[in-house]
């Protein structure tokens, strides 16, 4: 079997799937920006700035997928069936793993722009709150990226069981990151909406949001643990 086939397949899965979430998220932000502009045409500068910052952070997930695709295409030199499986698995883990937080990071961006449409005076508070929410939402992508970087650098023993264990680890991390990514986004979305309504409670809301997001990520951590067990222990 030619290893290169699996490298290319892994890179394709990585960026192909990884672009889905961020694209939807950014579209959602742009949609809310246009609605906010319709309400507050006078604040177009501030709305545009917030939109661009929000979209740039939402892009992170897709950029991680791109980095992984580039690492697979240009940074790999292993050969053999086992290495081929690890490359394919790395692509699966990061590809599926970025869907959730790409889409999730779009949600707080959208609701921050909704808040801008209500009252553009709150621009600074909303920007800070949005950035924190989106940054914490990236956690599931970071876990997926970690697992797929481990997979790329790993040289596993040559066995049939290990091959399926590695594939299983990639599926666990990849699919496991989807739900918590979206869930984190929902928490941040509602927190941003609340900040838009009552900006003076921002400190309290940021704290609650971070705790809510941290607990939402628990299943993501279980996926990480199962993936690490499948990769290293089995």
């Amino acid at each position: 079997m030619d290893t290169m086939i699996f490298v290319v397949l892994g890179a394709g899965l990585s960026i192909g799937l990884g672009a889905i979430g961020s694209a939807i998220g950014e579209g959602y932000i742009a949609m809310n920006a246009i609605q906010a502009l319709g309400r507050q045409p006078g604040a177009s500068q501030k709305i545009l700035r917030l939109m661009i910052i929000g979209q740039a952070i939402t892009e992170t997930a897709a950029i991680f997928a791109l980095v992984m695709a580039l690492v697979l295409l240009f940074g790999t030199d292993g050969s053999g069936t086992m290495k081929a499986v690890t490359y394919l698995s790395a692509g699966i883990a990061i590809g599926f793993g970025t869907i959730g937080s790409g889409f999730g990071a779009g949600l707080p961006g959208g609701s921050a722009l909704k808040g801008m449409g209500r009252n553009p005076e709150n621009s600074d508070v909303l920007t800070v709150q949005m950035i924190i929410g989106q940054a914490v939402t990236q956690t599931s992508t970071i876990f997926a990226l970690t697992v797929s970087l481990i997979l790329v650098t790993l040289t596993p023993e040559d066995s049939y069981v290990k091959m399926f264990a590695i594939l299983g680890g990639a599926f666990a991390m990849g699919f496991g990151a989807i739900g918590p990514g979206i869930g984190d986004g929902i928490v941040a979305k509602n927190a941003n909406e609340a900040v838009g309504r009552s900006p003076k409670h921002m400190g309290l809301l940021t704290r609650t949001m971070i705790i809510g997001q941290a607990i939402t990520e628990t299943t993501d951590i279980y996926s990480l643990v199962v993936a690490l067990i499948l990769i290293f222990v089995v």
Binding site: T146, L149, I221, L224
Partner: peptide, 13 residues
């Protein structure tokens, strides 16, 4: 593992 995953993941990236 929440602490470990975040710090270790950041280092790897």
């Amino acid at each position: 593992f929440r602490l470990f995953g975040n710090i270790f993941g950041g280092f790897m990236i």
